[in-house]
Structure formats: structure tokens, C-alpha cells
Design a protein around this nucleic acid. Structure first.
Ligand SMILES: [Mn+2]
Ligand SMILES: [Mn+2]
Ligand SMILES: [Zn+2]
Ligand SMILES: [Zn+2]
Lengths: 132, 132
DNA sequence: ACACTTTTTTAGAATCATTATAAACTACTT
DNA sequence: AAGTAGTTTATAATGATTCTAAAAAAGTGT
């Protein structure tokens, strides 16, 4: 299995559940955005055995900590995650409540002129809200 | 009272509670960021009578809808609001869990090149996460 | 294979920010 | 003053997320 090594290298045991979640998350043509609830439904559809919700939460958070997933800063009553972990920005369709990736070429260079003493910039994320 | 008219013009009755919340929110030198919980504590300190938590939630949401407050897109277990309703961006100090305003001069012009058919840009917000 | 340790999974309970309910109260209109 | 529509409030409900602790699985050494 191609994810076994990836998990081992991260200090995560390649369990059946984690490998299955890897398939659902990463064995896709395109990257995608999801909430835990949506991922849970996707898992139910794609695999036979049951994976507990607690394990899905645990795994998503473990993957996020390891950098295999990104949390998207947005106000919703559910937390959004992204399988696209490259630096990129988002449209947020307020009507559909859907995120859309902005490619790097879609956004001009961002110039943050201010500095805060003793602090480093970890990330710079743009959220563009869309209405009709 | 200076807020009575403002409320009336928005179709909101100028109740005692709303006027008091206006004072706590807007009768300040500087704008500020807050969670409902923080606002609730601030209200307790600044006024004598009690305002129920439900009213604080109702009022904050009413004011947001009217454009007197802005919700800041950030992932926290509590929702952040901003009394600064001008277009501006934020630093987020991950350690302190505090927001810092970026003035417009602090950020170069932002160029969103991509368009989505039938959708208009409602807002463009940058969140710069800071680590040590 | 076996014994032993550590990590992981799991069902269910707990947490807690937020929203809903519905009765009492207040502001506004006539 | 009476009527009504809007507001406040205590309290309950909701629901995403986290916690718990016991069972299962994975890794390690022999
Ligand atoms: Mn959802
Ligand atoms: Mn808060
Ligand atoms: Zn994305
Ligand atoms: Zn601000």
C-alpha cells in the first residue's frame, strides 16, 4: 500500500482505518474541501466496514498536524478542511456555502508591509466572499 | 442619546439594552475585536443592570446584519467580531489567540484575476497567521 | 509464535458555543 | 388607554467537537 510508508514516516501506525481514510482523501483526481460530516458520508459510501466518528476526527486532526490536510479559516458552524495543502486562496460562495480554489496565478502578489516584533509570518490566506 | 437615531434608522427599537450595548461597543477610542463571551464580560463590568446572554447574541447578530459589526473569518471555537467595519485585514497571533488590525497602508493592492460567472465579490479578506 | 508495551479504535458521555422556545415585558401607534 | 408588534429573558434544545475508558490492533523483543 502506498500510504503505509507515508504514515510510518510520520510516526503514525498504518492502521486499516487510516489507510482507508487516506484512500478517500488522497486517491482522487482533484483535491477537495470537506467538513467532517461530509467526509464521514463519503467514507460510508466508499468503504464497507464502519469507521467511528471519533476515529475520523482523530485522523483528520492527526493528518492536519502532519501537514497532509489544511484547515480553512472560515466562519461556518462546521470546520472546513482542504486536501490541497499548497499555499492558495479561496472563493467562498455564500449562497451555495461552497469553497472554490484560487490558483496562484489567479491572485497577484501579496505584499504585507507591517512587521510584528518577534513574530514570523506562518501563512497568508485570502478569502474572497461571493454573492449573487 | 446619540445611538437612538442610529437604531431607529435601522428599524431597530432603541431599547435600554441595545443602547447600553452600543455604548460598550462604539463609545471607545479605538475599535476592537471580541467574542460574545468577552463582550459579555465587558458589559458586566461597564453597566449595572444585567443583560441576558440571549440578548447579547441577538443584538450582535442584529448589528452585524445592519453593518455595524463585522464577523471575522477565523477558526476558533468562538466566533470573533470586529467593531471596525471598514475593509481591512488581520494578523492573527496564534500563540496569544489575538487579532491585530492591518491598516490599508500595511497591505499592497490585491488583485483577484479570476471571475465566477454570475457572482460578485462581496469582500476580500486576508488573514496573516503569526507564529514565534 | 508468544508475551509485553504502546498506540489506536470505539461507543458512548460530556462539553460548550450557539440557537430555539415561549412567556413576560416594552416600545410604538392610534 | 388599548392594541400590536417587537424585544428581552430564563431556560431548554441543538449539534459539532472533545473526552473517557475499555477493547482491539500494532509494534517489539525473545
Ligand atoms: Mn456540512
Ligand atoms: Mn468567545
Ligand atoms: Zn482549497
Ligand atoms: Zn479588525
Amino acid at each position: 500500500m502506498k500510504y503505509t510508508e507515508k504514515l510510518r514516516n510520520s510516526g503514525l501506525r498504518p492502521t486499516k482505518q487510516r489507510l482507508q481514510i487516506c484512500e478517500v482523501l488522497f486517491e482522487t483526481e482533484k483535491t477537495f474541501h470537506f467538513t467532517i460530516n461530509e467526509l464521514s458520508l463519503k467514507i460510508k459510501k466508499q468503504i464497507d466496514n464502519k469507521i467511528s466518528l471519533a476515529t475520523i476526527y482523530n485522523t483528520v486532526h492527526a493528518f492536519e498536524k502532519k501537514g497532509y490536510l489544511k484547515q480553512i479559516p472560515i466562519n461556518s458552524n462546521e470546520t472546513y478542511f482542504d486536501t490541497n495543502v499548497s499555499d492558495h486562496h479561496h472563493f467562498y460562495d455564500l449562497k451555495k456555502e461552497k469553497l472554490i480554489d484560487l490558483e496562484n496565478a489567479d491572485v497577484g502578489p501579496i505584499d504585507i508591509k507591517r512587521k510584528i516584533d518577534g513574530k514570523k509570518i506562518k501563512s497568508v490566506e485570502i478569502l474572497v466572499k461571493l454573492e449573487d
